[in-house]
Amino acid sequence: MTDTKEQVATSKSDYEKFMERAEIAAAKVSTIQAFEEAVKYAIDLCLERPLNRYAISDEQVTTEGERKVIAAPALSPSEYELLKEESAAHSIDCLDSGMRNHLNGVDVGLSYGDLGLAETGTLVLNCPNEELRLATMVCEYHVCVLPKSKIYNDGYEAEEQLRKFMLDAPNYTAFITGPSRTADIERVLSIGVHGPLELHILILED
């Protein structure tokens, strides 16, 4: 997490615009008051959606006996504890590391967004941490908590922040706008090629 942004730019309209544009990009956006709600949201989503795994070797893929998994590698220790406790109550596994052992699929990835760009409804994730990167790429459903104060109008307004990220090399910064998509077959838009099938943004009032 980086510096909070100056008060001036925190206009209501950036926030509204962000919501609107992210939804146009097929993200699902809601507002939460506290992190606990994100935990509940992630677990509910995890329970609702079907379990899906991928064959990554010659071994046949099976979902039988598999438990659902939430990957959340970059939470604070107390946040992770909370998630773990609540998940366990629903027979969901959690992990905060070892993503490379779960490349056959995890159900939900839970992360924090570093910036929001209202003009395009874009999340910015500063993720040199490989575990975090993988969690947000390999998961079927990505749930991302974005503090409201981190919403900027556009990339130009956030340019200084972005520069800071990138100058702190090595660095991996991801702009994420909606779920993974393609129009490569007959130009028909389809959601969920290699990345997450759904993107859920939870705007945290702060």
Partner: peptide, 27 residues
């Protein structure tokens, strides 16, 4: 980016724009 994605596929931005700087962590 602003002109590229709009002109290419009429998207305000693509789903991902990935910025890689240097040799990152890799398990």
């Amino acid at each position: 980016v602003k002109v590229l994605t709009r002109n290419a596929t009429a998207q305000p931005i693509t789903s991902y724009v990935t910025w890689v700087t240097g040799a990152n962590q890799c398990g």
